[in-house]
């Protein structure tokens, strides 16, 4: 790998020649703000919040798209850069609802974070603002295009990662909006509800319905776990508040890069389905009656012993489960085999 020498904020660095300014800065622990950048998506350089000052350049190039070159001298927080970032944030503000108090995104909103960082408290620009009706027609998330800042990550995620290509920019310029072909509702488009757009939205334009009004980022504990559906084995963080799941963040650092499908992303609410079994049941006279664990377990153990004594160990069989953990499958087969039989199987074949 060819290396080049650059200077960022006075710090001299030797970095890979293939890096962008953004990557080089990150490698040195220098954080440059971004809205539209996502390491796995095409670099579009659309939001311009990452502009930096490069000695000798006429304009302020975008850090996310500009490659480093030998001898480059970069300032990431110069007065000119900060001015451009502030004006751009103010421009976004001028066309963005100011309802941060109740916005679901509060606390994990990049617009909020950067406004705070650059002390943007409002916008001096008065004028027309976009007005879109709230779209809450699908059962998984709602779209508030009034909050859209046109970073286009949802569009690229949908096209480049999912392949559905359900959404695109429509119209031009100030009248642009992200929507489906012919502006039909999402369910009538090629959308497969994977929710990956929701998870990359830097602002409150796309919000999951699950956990609505109950999901402040600082209130939840995030627990890394593995999806219980198909064999892809996507991993994610469950958001837990008061012993309830209130949301989910894909594991972007995981091997599958945080990709998800509709079942994994939104299908976890069966956990608190009202018909969950909450106590052991023993059938008496054809009816189930609630029992204590000791009653149930004693009965099971004694029945197994009884059958084994009377008919031999091979009169017992067990079906283990492709849903349960390795530890549980291990213990299950150990139990059957310890009883003296190899009659253990599971539904791998189904």
């Amino acid at each position: 790998m060819t290396k080049v020498n650059i200077t960022i904020n006075g710090q001299q660095l030797e970095v890979d020649a293939s890096m962008t300014i953004l990557e080089a800065a990150e490698s040195a622990g220098i954080e440059i703000p971004t809205f539209c950048h996502d390491p796995e998506l095409t670099r579009v350089g659309a939001c311009r919040i990452c502009v930096v000052e490069v000695a000798g350049a006429r304009n302020l190039p975008a850090a996310c798209t500009t490659p480093v070159s030998e001898g480059m001298v970069i300032e990431t927080e110069s007065e000119r850069v900060i001015k451009a970032r502030r004006v751009n944030l103010q421009l976004i503000w001028a066309n963005h609802p100011q309802d941060c108090l109740t916005c679901e995104k509060t606390g994990s909103c990049k617009l909020q974070d950067y406004s705070y960082r650059y002390n943007v408290t409002g916008s001096p620009y008065q004028g027309e603002a976009k007005v879109f009706e709230l779209d809450n027609t699908n059962p998984f998330f709602f779209r508030d295009l009034n909050k859209c800042i046109y970073c286009g990550k949802c569009v690229r995620k949908c096209f480049e990662v999912n392949g559905a290509g359900a959404i695109e920019f429509m119209y031009r310029g100030f009248n642009s909006k992200v929507t489906t072909a012919f502006d039909v509702p999402l369910e009538e488009s090629s959308c497969v509800m994977c929710g990956m757009c929701v998870d990359v939205c830097p602002v409150g334009a796309l919000t999951p319905l699950q956990g609505l009004h109950n999901n402040r980022p600082w209130e939840v504990e995030k627990v890394l776990t593995t999806c219980p559906y198909c064999g892809c084995g996507c991993t994610y963080y469950l958001h837990v508040k008061n012993d309830k799941i209130v949301g989910l963040t894909p594991n972007f650092e995981g091997p599958l890069k945080g990709h998800m499908c509709v079942k994994g992303r939104f299908g976890w609410d069966f956990v608190d389905s009202p018909d969950r079994l909450k106590t052991p049941l023993i059938k008496k006279d054809g009816e189930f009656v609630e029992a204590t664990w000791d009653e149930a377990l004693d009965l099971v153990a004694s029945k197994f012993k009884e059958v084994r004594a009377q008919y031999g160990p091979d009169a017992i069989a067990g079906l283990s489960s492709a849903r349960t953990t390795n530890e549980e499958n291990y213990l299950f087969q150990k139990l059957l085999r310890s009883l003296g039989t190899n009659n253990v199987d599971h539904c791998a074949r189904l």
């Binding site: 659309a46 939001c47 451009a84 751009n88 008065q126 310029g173």
Partner: peptide, 21 residues
Amino acid sequence: TQKESCGKCTPCREGTKRMLE
């Protein structure tokens, strides 16, 4: 130019609109 702005980048999309206003 404001009418012909493609809408991709923030300064052109939002900024030319405000300048025009």
